[in-house]
Design a protein around this nucleic acid. Structure first.
Lengths: 220, 220
DNA sequence: AAATATTTTTAGATTTGTCTAAATAATTTT
DNA sequence: AAAATTATTTAGACAAATCTAAAAATATTT
């Protein structure tokens, strides 16, 4: 089956909201997609008709197994293109989203699978999010503050709590960006500072305050 | 300015038809795009309003300078993607058109220019058609039967007249495909057969009959 | 549990790109 | 040049995706 760009955007948004809150509301979706609730209702009916959604009016909705498969296909395309843009075309991580948002709607199976192969079957995109494989298998991740990451477990930085210029300056110094893979080697009891291995670099020591503001994607 | 996928498809079709016949008609366009003449008229009005087209009803139409620039942008994107698909993702020349047709509508300037650079600034696509550069400059080509190509002038094969299996079998033997660059080294007066240099291979001799059925893109 | 507030849905309109059928203009034939 | 044919345009309709305004269902407060 083939879906319109709009339908795909709804499916993707529902999938993402479902990961976070499990119960998705019409309003939340309307907010996410920047459309009016009435438009959302219209689309929900359509997606239900296409068997992508369980939906009973006023009672809520969720993706069917089919809807989930379709969502994972879209996410796979999105993240592969993001990887391509950063790895091959030398975009920075913060420039890729918009463009990938368009490229993801090109659905040729052959294109996507060949691209995957060309990129060397990457498993995470430049933001550290996992890329579903060609069968839709994906490693589930959750986001934890660095102090909650087990010792010696490597994980990519996926967001920064305090985004002040001071914090960002410090991160530049440590050469930590979004997607940088890090690992806790040791925690110092004295002040809860920790020794951290940064991918392809020297080990550094960061304060508890910094650690609390670094979030990593933790496959668990 | 930003144009819809439909608008872009019309502009591109008008550009291509203009290359061949110079005078483009509503019917020809309707035929090319597989839509009804009435729909074409509607779009012509819209494109005129957007200053992409000179158009007076019943009198004909042609692209403005702006329309031409836009067309070249689309063609640039199309051909760069075709090159990418063949060169990086190992598609064959006959598989790429459909996919490139979709990718061409992703308009990010940065994406296109970076892709161009990544590919090494190619000047022709896999079918031997020239790729406009970032300023819209393009080498004009015309299509001639091989016997009309000047001696020692290299040119890519762009189409085959007789597409019978017999002819295609022979071409497979000679290792000539669409896009293969060839060059006439000598013509034998006896039977008008000719010695032809095939890119990266031995020189071969082909009959007049074969030569007449090979068309090449000739920059002139 | 009433009253109030919020969320969701319906009803009806709008835009874009398309269509069919009919009307009009241009071209070709006789 | 009149008639016949062909090409093009107009008029009016439709589907997709959106909107606004109003109605209906659900949730919250007092």
């Amino acid at each position: 089956m083939n879906y319109s760009t709009s339908e795909e955007n709804y499916i993707k948004a529902i999938y993402h909201l479902q990961q976070e809150h499990h119960l998705v509301t019409t309003n939340a979706l309307s907010n996410e997609l920047d459309t009016r609730p009435a438009s959302v209702t219209d689309m929900l009916k359509k997606l239900k008709q296409k068997k992508l959604l369980h939906y009973e009016k006023y009672k809520g909705f969720s993706l069917t197994a089919l809807g989930n498969q379709v969502a994972l296909g879209i996410i796979r395309r999105h993240r592969l293109w993001e990887y391509f843009l950063v790895d091959k075309l030398l975009f920075t991580w913060d420039e890729v989203h918009e463009v990938a948002e368009e490229l993801e709607h090109v659905t040729s199976r052959k294109l996507v699978d060949r691209l995957d192969e060309f990129l060397g079957f990457p498993t995470v995109d430049p933001h550290g999010d996992p890329i579903p494989d060609k069968n839709g298998n994906i490693v589930k991740t959750r986001q934890v503050a660095l102090p909650d990451l087990p010792l010696n477990r490597s994980a990519p930085v996926c967001s920064v709590g305090d985004q002040s210029t001071d914090m960002l300056e410090l991160l530049r110094h440590y050469k930590i960006k979004l997607g940088t893979v890090i690992q806790i080697k040791k925690v110092f009891r004295f002040d809860n500072s920790m020794e951290v291995a940064v991918a392809n670099q020297d080990t550094i020591i960061i304060s508890e305050q910094v650690a609390k503001n670094l979030f990593v994607k933790y496959e668990g």
